[in-house]
Design a protein around this nucleic acid. Structure first.
Lengths: 227, 227
DNA sequence: GACCACTGTATGGTCAGACCATACCTAACC
DNA sequence: GGTTAGGTATGGTCTGACCATACAGTGGTC
């Protein structure tokens, strides 16, 4: 006995249509007015459904006219995940420990796989380290630091895990800046980064994994009493 | 010069208000009409913003009147993550390999931490195994299998990782059912589950981790040529 | 023929207003 | 005091209108 709102019905219909018609990234959905008429609902309900799909990162709406106008199917789980984590973190539902542990898990996996499967992306790692050297503020440092760690995740070849990584970093951005400022001298982090890069370049998964672990311990000393 | 849509502004205002006023789970937002007037936008724009927040799992709308009516702050990242993964998987952006690898990463971590930190939840594990024994169909089996693996993630004590685990399982439900049907005899999985349970009960992280790895290799033999 | 300016039009973005269903709240009533 | 009927605030939905945008076509100019 649960009420079904109109936009939820629209959502289900669109999802069904995607599955049945084999729609894929780049395909266009009918216009809002047309969808409303087809499904027998008001345009506002269609809009709410499209807004949900946009939030989930599967459609992108463009105004105007032409091949690129209207609601186009996309796939950007990154931004959606980022919003999700940021808002839920904002409600203080999750503790820093949990987020850092998740990061550690993902980064260990990413580093090991990046080292094991491919040497691609090593250039990006070096460039990111250089960027950190040039950084004048904590914000800039964190920006390149994020690029460094995301490059590792990308190099692992798993887009889902890379998306989770990127979202975690984005959601923790403020947090990371504070951590760097609290640390003061980021030189210890530089050595860590270099060690990680070298391990991946050398194709040594074990060493890469350990280097990442030590690195996070240095970045969050409060959470790793052993160090 | 990027256009800012009205609902995005509303979104930012609400998010700011949550941060500044220290709103937390259970608190109520103003009504849609009131918000619209306060922010100088139409009610439909407010509704679209609320729909986004609902999609991200941070508000829940109730009709009617009284203390529980209106938009209430909540925090259910699980359902949001599930929708996100399901829709993005539906667009075939991610390959099975990537999802299974992510699962393996998370389950290894969960099992190791569950074994290392606490013996709580072992009863749930036994109950889930029993449920799988009683299952007559692949659907029922997968249901209890999901309960088993989510119980491990819960026992690890990390809610973020547990939420990701749960979402992955929900999004992969159909996939898991097919995998079980393809396997035919689930007895090999039973032995794996029992081994995992025993390792966690005994507090042996290494063994738990290895047991999980072997388990997933059995469940997806095509992805693990070595076995 | 090639290029450019103007107009038409389909699209999303936004608002105002109306009405409905729901569920609590209150006051009248027994 | 308990019960019932009406009031009211809330979200849910639809309609219709108008705006801004950006392509598509048209026509003119060189």
């Amino acid at each position: 006995m649960k009420r079904t709102r109109a936009f939820e019905d629209v959502l289900a219909q669109i999802e069904r249509r995607i599955a049945e018609d084999g729609l894929t990234v780049g395909d266009r959905l009918p216009g809002e007015r047309q969808l409303a008429e087809q499904l027998g609902v008001g345009r506002s309900s269609v809009r709410e459904a499209l807004r949900v799909l946009e939030t989930l990162g599967v459609v992108s709406s463009q105004v105007g006219r032409g091949p690129d106008a209207g609601a186009v199917l996309t796939s950007r789980p990154d931004t959606a995940l980022t919003d999700l984590l940021r808002l839920n973190l904002g409600l203080a539902t999750l503790e820093q420990r949990e987020v850092v542990d998740a990061r550690l898990m993902i980064e260990r996996w990413s580093a090991a796989h990046a080292a094991a499967t491919t040497r691609a992306g090593v250039a990006e790692l070096a460039a990111a380290i250089e960027g950190m050297d040039r950084a004048a503020t904590a914000e800039e440092f964190v920006e390149h630091d994020t690029a460094f760690h995301c490059a590792i995740a990308d190099a692992s070849g798993n887009r889902l895990i890379a998306a989770i990584m990127r979202s975690l970093r984005d959601a923790m951005r403020r947090n990371a800046i504070e951590a760097v400022e609290r640390l003061g001298d980021p030189s210890v982090l530089r050595a860590d980064h270099e060690r990680i890069r070298a391990a991946i370049a050398a194709g040594d998964p074990e060493e890469a994994q350990q280097a990442v672990t030590d690195h996070l311990a240095h970045a969050y000393p409060a959470l790793f009493p052993g160090h």
